[in-house]
Write a protein that binds this DNA or RNA. Structure first.
Length: 455
RNA sequence: GGCGGGUUAGCCAAGUGGUAAGGCGGGAGUCUGCAAAACUCCUAUGCGUCGGUUCGAAUCCGACACCCGCCUCCA
């Protein structure tokens, strides 16, 4: 199994530090707003990664942070008059609801930054003791980038090559070096009631330090996987490495995996362009979680994904094809014990082993569907395919459709229609079919007789 | 300016040296009383452009074009 490691910019064979255990940390949400479809692409990719590792027999310990103190949250608190906890609890709950809708497995541990303050303080103290951090005049604590020669190894950039960006506010903080970043931000009035005591006075943690503190706390100083959107490579993850390795003296993360961003209808998603969507926006338009999951998952995670409504329609049709296949399998499957299909499994695995090549994996599945549809499987084969597919679905998470029980009144109408057809009374049989359609039932006439299914 | 990613049919998207997977959409059929589902055939002599290497390139090399991301708190 190979993954593309941002650190080396190459695909590398995946060898965990302590197999079969795998420590996996994924950067979670900042809970001041609803997650948008771009955020959810990252979580969907991470879910595929985790599920595949579990499928391959690894014992994954997955940690995802909840960032519940941050500039935008504080602004929301100030503007709404609510407490920090009220704001962040609400959006945290909504976030988990979104994950559930997309059938994304929740991390085993989802620590909040505000519940990790003592660990954060300890980590900052260690950095100060090791001369990697300093207390500035205003009592904020900064990380000294100069103290860490390897700084830049993840994002492959040298600071002196960087343009002095217009977005950098030169005088805002009392830093020694431009590129130094805050570990602890001293309290100011705009923060209102949001503050914690520390050896450096009241304040709050910087952004990057929480992830170091939470990942080290729950996964140890060194662990296997750290994921996030590609925008986090710099500075967030670069800073995490600097902090963590400087504080512990140990290598931080073995494999860094980053997903590309998405476009919506070919354009960068933005509220002003009118192509900004949260999950609830899409659900309100009638798309289902699994359709959205399929659309987000069917493109390789390191390629930019063009998220479109045509694409969602394509996802819907593709899933209907799968569902139809799986329902027919269930109708013919035997109850005997089953064997999994080695050939199909090896194709599926080979694709995903190669840096999660989901397109190739789905290609193999659809090719198989066509072959199987062509030659009517016998009951034992159907059982085997179904068993294999259930195995795959542990990775894909699209779900196996369950055949709906046909209510007696519907069954009555189906039989009535069939009698009318036998009598060549097609006008009546079509009327009954329309009537059933209104009740959400589609009738297919097969060689074995009529088949009623949910429309 | 620095670093990185992308460009494959109407749309989405695999494929990193051996002659273009798969999905969606479209067209024509088979089946059906008609449908539906399924199946069959068709829908890229060509993979951004121009050169080069090679017996052979979407795949390697060199230019160029366009799009996108990051360059201090945005997945």
């Amino acid at each position: 199994m190979k993954f593309y490691n941002t650190l080396s910019r190459q695909k590398e064979e995946f060898v965990p530090l302590a197999p079969p255990c795998v420590g996996m940390y994924t950067c979670g949400p900042t809970v001041y707003n609803f997650a948008h479809i771009g955020n959810l692409r990252a979580f969907t990719f991470e879910d595929l990664l985790r599920r595949y590792l579990e499928y391959k027999g690894y014992d994954v310990q997955h940690v995802m942070n909840i960032t519940d103190v941050e500039d935008k949250i504080i602004r929301t608190v100030r503007e709404s008059g609510k407490t920090l906890r009220e704001v962040t609890d609400f959006f945290t709950t909504e976030f988990f609801r979104d994950l559930d809708a997309l059938n994304i497995k929740r991390a085993h541990v989802t620590p909040r930054a505000t519940e990790t303050i003592p660990d954060i303080i300890k980590l900052i103290e260690a950095l100060i003791a090791r001369k990697h951090a300093y207390v500035a005049d205003d009592s904020s604590v900064y990380y000294s980038i100069q103290s860490f020669p390897e700084y830049g190894k993840l994002s492959h950039r040298k600071l002196d090559e960087q343009r002095a960006g217009a977005r950098v506010k030169q005088d805002e903080y009392a830093k020694e070096q431009m590129a130094d970043f805050a570990l602890w931000k001293t309290w100011n009035e705009a923060d209102g009631p949001v503050k914690w005591d520390s050896p450096w006075g009241p304040g709050r943690p910087g952004w990057h330090i929480e992830c170091s503190a939470m990942s080290i706390k729950h996964l140890g100083a060194s662990f296997d996987l750290h994921c996030g959107g590609e925008d986090l490579v710099f500075p967030h993850h670069e800073d995490e490495i600097a902090q963590s390795e400087a504080a512990t003296g140990k290598p931080f993360v073995k494999y860094w995996l980053h997903n590309a961003h998405l476009l919506v209808e070919g354009k960068k998603m933005s509220k002003s362009a009118g192509n900004f969507f949260t999950l609830r926006d899409l659900l309100a338009k009638g798309w289902t979680g699994r359709e959205i999951r399929y659309a987000l998952l069917s493109c390789h995670y390191r390629d930019p994904l063009n998220f479109t409504f045509d694409g969602l329609q394509g996802a819907r049709s593709a899933l209907q094809r799968m569902d139809e296949f799986l329902l027919k399998l269930q109708e013919t499957a035997a109850l005997e014990t089953s064997d999994e299909l080695a050939d199909l499994t090896s194709q599926f695995d080979a694709a995903l082993d190669d840096d999660l090549n989901i397109s190739a994996a789905l290609g193999a599945l659809f090719e198989f569907i066509r072959e199987a549809n062509k030659r009517m499987l016998d009951p034992l084969e159907a059982t085997n395919v179904l068993a294999t597919w259930r195995h795959f679905d542990a990775v894909l998470g699209f779900g196996i459709p369950v055949k709906s029980d046909v209510p007696v009144e519907v069954q009555g109408l189906v039989e009535e229609r069939q009698a009318a057809r036998k009598a060549k009374n097609f006008k009546q049989s079509d009327e009954i079919r329309d009537q059933l359609a209104k009740q959400g039932w589609v009738i297919e006439d097969t060689p074995k007789g009529p088949r009623a299914k949910r429309g």
